[in-house]
């Protein structure tokens, strides 16, 4: 049985430096995933719903995991999380909140809105590489992600 295409990981983060660092961290961990980026909540929902510039499914392959920053302009991660989990077509995509905030309120609220996990962004690159490696091991090797028929993906 041929292995499925590498899982698409969609990262929503308004900070260009953080996006770049995460990309480098994935490279360092030798994870061969298709890492895609959106810069804010509006962009994220357009991608997931295949609207506007994302109407071509080839440009917006369905992600297997979403990495979600909470503080973004136009529409923040909290709102986007609520929308994703309320949408029956999107609710089964695991959402990992990856944000600078360590506020108890943000942590609790994220889980209440059905985030799968919450990670506070580390400061050093080394720590980020470790986290990405752990994410890879857990979500992509250990865990079974929901299977989708090819036609939908």
């Amino acid at each position: 049985m041929a292995k499925a295409d590498p899982i698409v990981i969609l990262m929503a983060d308004d900070d260009a430096d953080d996006r770049e660092m995460t990309r480098e961290a994935f490279e360092s961990s030798h994870l061969a995933n298709d890492l895609r980026f959106v810069a804010d909540g509006v962009d994220l929902m357009d991608y997931l719903n295949r609207r506007g510039i994302y109407s071509d499914p080839a440009k917006s392959p369905r992600p297997g995991i979403i990495l979600l920053d909470l503080n973004m302009p136009k529409k923040d991660g909290r709102e986007a999380l609520q929308e994703i989990k309320a949408d029956p077509k999107l609710t089964d995509i695991p959402v990992i909140v990856l944000t600078t905030s360590k506020e108890e309120e943000d942590i609790n609220r994220s889980y209440t809105l059905h985030a799968n996990s919450y990670i506070t962004k580390p400061v050093t690159f080394g720590a980020l590489v470790n986290i990405v490696a752990s994410l890879g091991k857990y979500w992509l090797e250990i865990v079974e992600l929901p299977h989708k028929r090819r036609s939908i993906a």
Binding site: D17, N71, T100, E103, K121, V123, T124, F125, G126
Partner: peptide
Amino acid sequence: ASVAAHDLQEPLRKIQAFGDRLQT
């Protein structure tokens, strides 16, 4: 206060992050 704290922390975080990468 919490917005100020967050926005003030932001550049510091970058200094730490890139400083750390520079060190390495």
